[in-house]
Design a protein around this nucleic acid. Structure first.
Lengths: 300, 300
DNA sequence: ATAATGTCTTTTATCGTGAAAAAACATTTT
DNA sequence: AAAATGTTTTTTCACGATAAAAGACATTAT
């Protein structure tokens, strides 16, 4: 089967949305930049748009003939990359009961179960290993270390160390830095979300990630910035998995963020430290409370 | 070509050394544990030992017939794993002049140059990416970020954060902990090395790694422990590359370690902090001084 | 002359395959 | 019965092959 054309399908769907909004299409290179794909893919997209009667296309002239209908879009599930598919399958297994620490992970079995080649699974596991949840035995299988209380504590320990340092670096940034405008924008988004928290509470996790990434970036340290990938991954699945009191938790977190933002804008290192600590403490509590005691079984 | 039998060859060589030392061989499972390979490999080894007249082998009876000769060993270069071969080639390129930041890395070209399959190169690059020296463009090539001054500063920033914390955790360990005996042993090794520094200075890097890993382990945090892999990799190649004043540098470092060890044994957090900072500062200086200014070219 | 389009080449992503190595199962020996 | 050896099955590692996607080069339009 070699390679799926999900890049094309995903870009095509995004292209349709663009067409719907702007009622026109730019040049091929420009469209490529907009969709984040090469011209080769852009031309495939345009070809299909022409075939399905969405546009008339002759060299530089692209005329929109009709608005896209739902059936013009490729099904969502066909737009995922293999890596995403594997990650989801793997995380489902990991978070399912019965995934105890010490359990061994079988590449071949995983590949068969998901219906992909072993190479893709291997590459996924190598990439995934940096999250600290699995470990490779030389010349042999992978071992699951488990999503345990110990893991959560180790993760949050680093997170707190990194974020306190990043926040301190943040307030030291010059007035002219673009981050202050970014921060203002995020503050506004937080206020809006706070006002409609009853209906939009599930939009918080995305905002949360953007906010913390902005702060981490102030460290100007690639290891700190990259480490946020680990946190983001864990919280992403944690949010999906633990829906208990989601609304209430997010409401509290939004308020903590606003206090944290105010502290940053005050440029008072002491206030920032306090606000940061307070928020991280409750984030840790939330994460810890979602880990059942039964998961704490230790490997040999 | 599928898969090389370097595991077998390497284990065979180690088996020969064992045979030479003990003049006897244990049971198959025991030998497997000793050499870190499966019984399948052990039996291949024993078969060859029998064929080449080194032993007589009949079920549990393994009689050593003669001592191994140099020609019994497999050549060293045949015992390296593919990953090691690729890493060496890659690092040689990376440290060579002309490897500027921003340069793109071509999997196919690398694979051809080294004479291996693309899969192995891909997997290597994925594994290597956690060192922060390369970065993947989605659906496209890898980009070299370069072994720059910025890299060294970011690396040492994290190192210092982690090691100070680990050292603080170290002194808080109970008297009964096995680490104190480990520390005594390392101290003794340091003293011996200090005594013969003129001739044995090149043995320092290995001791250095063991010492710092012992301290990092006291953090009981997998992210801190794992991060030492990044440091170890960088210092490994750095030592090979920068031989200027090696003897003198190592002599200073050994003394700093001894002071650091004394501080740890005093269990006085203030002294530990001071000794740790002092050593890390000179380690950073050493690393920085080895990065030529010309390497500081920034990518777009 | 610049920027687009048209065409061709190269590289990446993924698979199936086969040998090396591990692991599991069965049998024998102490 | 415990531990070794003998045998078979399964899994990992690495490759070459192929379609998707990117990139490079040539040509045409503004």
């Amino acid at each position: 089967m070699s390679k799926s054309n999900n890049v094309y399908k995903d870009a095509f769907n995004r292209g349709l949305r663009l067409l719907d909004e702007t009622k026109s299409l730019p040049s091929e290179p420009e469209l490529g930049t907009l969709l984040g794909v090469s011209r080769t893919t852009v031309r495939s997209i345009l070809s299909r748009m022409e075939e399905t009667g969405l546009i008339a296309w002759n060299k530089r002239n692209k005329t929109v003939l009709r608005a896209p209908k739902p059936e013009d879009f490729f099904p969502e599930e066909e737009t995922d990359s293999l890596a995403e598919i594997i990650e989801r399958s793997f995380m489902r297994r990991l978070l399912a009961e019965g995934a105890e620490a010490g359990m061994q992970i079988n590449e071949l079995e995983l590949a068969r179960e998901i219906g992909v080649g072993t190479t893709s699974v291997r590459e996924f596991l190598i990439r995934f290993s940096r999250f600290g949840l699995i470990e490779k035995r030389r010349n042999s299988h992978w071992v699951l270390k488990g999503f345990t209380r110990a893991f959560a504590l180790e993760l949050t320990e680093i997170r707190e160390m990194f974020e306190l340092r990043s926040a301190a670096a943040f307030v030291a940034l010059p007035e002219e830095s673009a981050v202050w405008a970014d921060l203002d924008r995020l503050e506004e988004e937080h206020r809006q979300l706070a006002g409609e928290i009853a209906t939009r509470f599930n939009e918080f996790s995305e905002l949360d990630e953007r906010f913390h990434r902005l702060i981490h970036r102030a460290s100007h340290n690639r290891f700190i910035v990259d480490f946020y990938d680990v946190i983001a991954m864990i919280f992403h699945y944690h949010y999906q998995w633990n829906k208990a009191q989601e609304r209430q938790r997010n409401e509290v977190a939004v308020q903590e963020h606003l206090a944290y933002i105010a502290a940053l804008k005050s440029r008072d290192p002491g206030k920032v430290d306090a606000a940061c600590r307070k928020h991280l403490k409750s984030a840790r509590q939330t994460l810890l409370s979602s880990i059942p005691e039964g998961r704490q079984v230790q490997p040999a």
